[in-house]
Design a protein around this nucleic acid. Structure first.
Lengths: 202, 202, 202, 202
DNA sequence: TATGAATGAGATTTCATTCAT
DNA sequence: CATGAATGAAATCTCATTCAT
């Protein structure tokens, strides 16, 4: 159900698309290139996807959906907002690191202007944003985060920071591990948010 | 008055391109659309630019170059790293706010994957990054910023935050003023960086 | 029947190209004109040929290749250099006469300067030249041709003469038969070459 | 009047055109390239020539016209058809050798298909052909050429041979002198034409 | 379901020619 | 006469999508 490979063409095409998009960029990725990478005929693509745009959108929905579900589950098991924040950073980075091509697509290719693509992406992204904002709201409520922070802006800071760090990693030769930066990034962010940031050692 | 000395076709085309790119996205902006927006013939474009890509690149270099020069000048007049940080945020936001179309192009359209575009953009962007990192290094040296912050990561936080806030603003209907957020964003960032962030009462 | 096994788009396009090139000249032959003459879509051309130039080159290689093979085969069956020379003239003229459009393309359109076209043509043409030079060398060795003739120059005379006669024929309204001139041309050439040109009474 | 250089733009443009056509081929020679080579503005070209085609045509008429006049004059001073033939070969080759660019244009670029160009060229070329045919007719009348030769075909042989030899020279790296081949070429041709070709030793 | 040959709209770019100065 | 910036028609080629098999 989750690991889609082997036999089901839908998954095959999606995997191929991740690779091709990552290597060439959305606009330089021909449908035929995806098809041949997936080992199917050009026409077959259209049995599973409405059009090229739909591949990118589905890809995002599928992958991002899974990711958000995971984050949700893991955060539910924690109560401390600060711990949640840290976990979120860990998951964000490890997720991207696990599939570098996917990371490239999400960090670079998805920044498309096409309104249809944007709005299709909005859904899962908003959900992710909501998770972040929940942490922030909890933190404010519990008193461990500054009471004066603007939740939306703080969320922008968190996401913007994670995103920029990830983008740098993708654009670099990726000769360092993204997950090695969790600690540092966490420290930077939590200081700006948590009242008493005697940082949890470790 | 609007910025295009009439008769200066180069500028005219650049202004037109900003508008057309902002409204349609780079890949949906035909050269002929830019030409007619600029009030020139299609072929005239190619008297001033090598090709379509070159329009986008020139546009960025021109605008970003000016912006960075301005930032440099203004920061030189300040000595306090905290004050510099604040000024930088103000300039970043007011710059984007001054030309919403340009902001859209920079925040959305430019995030393409085309290697040629990316590398052309790299130069000015690195310069901007360097400015930020200088502030951070100064802050660490003078003791007003935490000594343990990683300059590169902190720069990612600053830029990522500004960038994300700006993107949200561009993607919203822009029914609020970006510059109204300077104060809040500054507070968020400085707390994560400055040791003694009894924030300058601003 | 005419040479294009229907359904074979490659051949269809080539036949169409011969006609269109002959009627309009290479530079005045739009790809779309060839496509519509061939009864295929413009894009279809590019499934079979890399670009417009490639059509002309393929056309030449295909036709010239076949022709040379035929000449080779037929000459092998003769031993007398003088007889070989005559046969070559016959074949040269009848070949061109069999497809007047092709003749036009070869005599007129192909004499372009485009270096890519030139070098692509060189191969088969050199082969043809080699055949001629072989006849001349044999003739010298067997003593029936003058021992003092320069093989390369004599080949230029043979080819130049055939070529010029053919060009005149193409440029005339073609109201006479090229093959009717075999005898006369042969007589002119052989007298310049063969020692004892009591011409074979033909 | 004849040597046009220095000051008169008409000649300047023509010289430039010879060079540019020779180096790039007619269809790859932009009018602007000719203009800049001639040191005049693009528009100036159109004060002296109707259009691009007219440059090529004028060039041919001018150069070819001069050449034919010269040949005429020189042949008039000779009476022996055989000597005339030899002189013609000498002039043909030395003329081409004197201006290699012009030679290239005449040998290669002029083989255009454009009917307008072709017919414009026809005039001077026919005149040249007529000269050759006159020699042949005289030779037949005086009995020194075979009585059975077809004047038109023999002319094709002469011109075709000279042309092909010249083309080979142009297409080679031109590391040998064309005029060194006069003797050999003459011998080849005269044997095919003259009854008693105990070749004039020299 | 799966194929992949064929389609054809559409985009970029070139360049001969014009014309206001 | 001379200029050269501007024009805009026209041509090549790409590629997402279809559909007969």
């Amino acid at each position: 159900m989750v690991g889609n490979k082997s036999g089901d063409k839908y998954g095959l095409i999606l995997e191929a698309a991740v690779k091709v998009f990552a290597e060439n960029g959305y606009h330089n990725s021909q449908v035929s290139k995806i098809a041949s990478e997936a080992g199917v005929a050009d026409g077959t693509i259209y049995l599973y996807f409405q059009n090229k745009k739909d591949i990118l959108i589905s890809l995002f929905r599928e992958k991002m959906g899974n990711f958000i579900e995971q984050v949700k589950r893991e955060l539910e098991e924690l109560s401390d907002p600060v711990a949640k924040l840290k976990r979120l950073i860990e998951l964000h980075f490890s997720h991207l690191e696990a599939d570098k091509n996917l990371a490239t697509v999400i960090q670079i290719q998805l920044r498309q202007s096409d309104p249809e693509i944007r709005s299709a992406i909005t859904g899962p992204l908003k959900e992710y944003f909501r998770l972040m904002e929940e942490i922030l709201a909890e933190g404010k409520a519990s008193g461990c985060f500054y009471p004066d922070i603007d939740v939306r802006l703080a969320r922008s800071m968190i996401f913007g920071t994670l995103d920029e760090v990830a983008t740098c990693w993708v654009l670099s030769r990726r000769d360092y591990r993204l997950s090695d930066q969790v600690e540092e990034v966490f420290r930077l962010l939590v200081r700006g948010l948590a009242v008493n940031s005697k940082l949890p050692s470790g």
